[in-house]
């Protein structure tokens, strides 16, 4: 894999933040500010599959939506091939959206139930005025095949309700790749599917990377899935990136207490005796009176009170290309780069 992969950065997020203001309500007073993403630094390399892993509500989907520009960052900068796309508008934004596509979390909601599979998949071609209507069918058949639906002719005139969950998700992928994007964000594309279908989707995504040369961001809460599919992994906790590195390294030698907790809590199929010990995770959150400290402080079992409670930890280089954000790692050198 590595000889094919250049180390060229395709997408870069620099200190990207996104806030949501929730509406106030009569009983609890004014709205709250939710920090969905906090100063995220990330870079994706051309042709890699990057896994973004974290708990529910940690900001994974938000990150994906900012990248494909369904939403706009409140702070920071996002660049694709060096070009700033953070606040693109109008024609430029439409052109950008041709290059980056997203597969959404829920295959039951992502396809229009009234539209045939052929029309669903061809729609991005039509909206973007790509090719003539005559080549559309040919392109549709080709991507349906790439997405593992064959014979493709059997599917084109069906409606979504005539497909199983796994087939729908493959149609959603076909639709996302029909414009041959250089970047694909796949948001938990397999969380509703059984293992065999998931494995098939993994193969399809790998095929999209290998055959089309696309770069993929794979969003998941399953470390085990990330292990099989991803070259590198980033771990996100409540909007803060806390660890990043090559997939095998992050899984075999996690350094951040939260990454350790995620791996600890993953069910060990076939090793029933290995129950989670939660050596790094508190059962109940501890109170914190400052928001300046480590983002994980309230749940960290290893926290060294003063430092962790009051000071944001620095990034440390904990392995070749592996970085983590924790005060306990003070023996490691400061990180060379977090992106």
């Amino acid at each position: 894999m590595s000889e094919r992969r250049e180390n060229k950065t395709i997408l870069q997020l620099e200190r990207v933040s996104r806030f949501y203001r929730t509406r106030g309500n009569v009983f609890r007073g004014g709205g709250r500010l939710v920090v969905a993403l906090n100063e995220i630094n990330l870079s994706l390399r051309a042709g890699e599959i990057f896994g973004l892993v974290g708990e529910s509500g940690s900001g994974k989907t938000t990150c994906g939506r900012l990248i494909v520009r369904l939403e706009e960052a409140d702070q920071g900068r996002i660049t694709l091939n060096g070009e700033d796309i953070t606040h693109l508008k109008g024609k430029k934004l439409r052109e950008y959206r041709r290059q980056v596509q997203m597969v959404f979390q829920d295959p039951y909601q992502s396809l229009n139930p009234q539209v045939t599979i052929a029309d669903s998949v061809a729609e991005p071609l039509i909206t973007n005025k790509v090719g003539s209507p005559l080549d559309h069918m040919e392109r549709v058949l080709k991507v349906l095949k790439t997405a593992g639906l064959s014979p493709a002719e059997d599917y084109v005139y069906r409606f979504p309700h005539q497909l199983s969950g796994g087939q729908r998700q493959r149609v959603a992928i076909a639709r996302a790749i029909v414009l041959e994007p250089s970047l694909l964000v796949a948001d938990e594309p397999t969380s509703m599917l059984d293992a065999s279908y998931s494995a098939q989707i993994f193969e399809i995504l790998q095929g999209v990377r290998d055959k089309m040369g696309a770069t993929i961001m794979f969003i998941t809460h399953s470390m085990a899935s990330a292990r099989y599919l991803c070259d590198r992994i980033g771990v996100i906790y409540r909007g803060h990136l806390v660890e990043q590195g090559p997939a095998e390294q992050v899984i075999n030698a996690p350094q951040h207490p939260y990454t350790k907790a995620l791996i600890d809590a993953t069910p060990k199929f076939g090793r029933a005796a290995e129950v989670p010990t939660y050596g790094t995770l508190l059962a109940a959150e501890r109170p914190a009176n400052s928001s300046a400290g480590c983002p994980f402080f309230r749940r960290c079992a290893l926290a060294e009170r003063l430092l962790c409670a009051g000071t944001y930890p620095p990034w440390r280089q904990v392995g070749p290309e592996q970085v983590a954000l924790c005060h306990l790692l003070e023996d490691a050198a400061p990180a060379v780069s977090t992106g």
């Binding site: 293992a195 998931s198 494995a199 993953t266 199929f269 076939g270």
Partner: peptide
């Protein structure tokens, strides 16, 4: 086939075999 297509964290990383 179902069991051999299931991804795990433990043990060697074998190829997942979809059906």
């Amino acid at each position: 086939a179902l069991v051999s297509s299931f991804p795990t964290l433990a043990g060697p990383k074998t190829k997942l075999a979809p059906i």
